[in-house]
Design a protein around this nucleic acid. Structure first.
Lengths: 157, 157
DNA sequence: GGTGAAAGCGAGGACCA
DNA sequence: TGGTCCTCGCTTTCACC
């Protein structure tokens, strides 16, 4: 389950990261293998959790989500209890599409989507500000997406 | 091509966002439709660009990428030329997995991955600092992922 | 926009080297 | 580990409501 990834594994991962709809036959051709062992490798990578899932990427704008904001959060207290409550609350807020506990002057960095600036403002005030332990928020808006593929580099693929 | 999304479309999008491997038959059952019209809807959503692609999600840690950093960039000059050069350069750096032009005290927000802190330090010094127009960098490290699904909320799905 | 049917093909397993 | 069938079920595309 924890065998190191060889060059073939890495090429499979790179290919599937770019296009999850490749058939096993296409994949096999791409890595110079026959379909069956290729399929077995992919399954092994899935079961080992190297591949955690397959997802359709959607266009936020075309879904009516015109605003993406990066929100830095400073906590007022740093007890474990409060942190846990904050983290749990964040899980249940659909508008928060990503959240990390980060080092530095802020405690958390959130990525939030909203239909427009007015909706975001209301959301920040009524939902984010009210989260457990929050002392201060700082919102930075995405003005222009430069690179959003989030494709992980795979050395030697 | 620009028909508004009805409830069925939104449910299809929500389902495929969670699992791109659902078969058309399963999708059809889930939205109470027969496979054929269901397949036609999915194809329409793909062609309209609402679905921009299908991708395997990989586990950065298991790929040996232990560090995720959020890097705020302040530019020294704000000419269009320099911005274009910076944006173009960022495209070609695999370690930069996301980049937005943002409002506020910083100009760009980057998300960067690296094997470990030492590798990140070297990368920040030799690659990021050297990008066109960069005046200052501020790195914040992801200590703990709270929510990383990046699932877009789809109202009424 | 929805249904039913038909053809082609890919997934996934059994088995061998 | 990799390779070769083989089979089932699905995808995809018709023609038609």
């Amino acid at each position: 389950m924890d065998a190191p990834l060889d060059r073939t594994d890495r090429r499979l991962l790179a290919a599937l990261q770019d296009d999850a709809r490749l058939t096993v036959a296409e994949l096999a051709e791409r890595v110079a293998l026959s379909p069956s062992p290729c399929w077995r490798r992919v399954r092994r990578l899935e079961q080992a959790g190297v591949i955690s899932g397959y997802h359709a990427r959607l266009d936020a704008g075309r879904l009516g989500l015109g605003i993406t904001a990066f929100v830095s959060v400073v906590m007022g207290s740093h007890t474990r209890e409060v942190a846990r409550a904050f983290e749990a609350a964040v899980q249940d807020i659909p508008e928060v599409i990503a959240c990390h506990n980060v080092s530095g002057e802020y405690d958390f960095l959130l990525e939030v989507v909203a239909p427009d600036l007015a909706a975001y403002g209301e959301f920040a005030r009524s939902v984010l500000q009210a989260l457990p332990g929050v002392r201060a928020l700082h919102s930075s808006f995405a003005l222009k997406p430069i690179k959003t593929a989030r494709r992980l580099p795979i050395p030697g693929a």
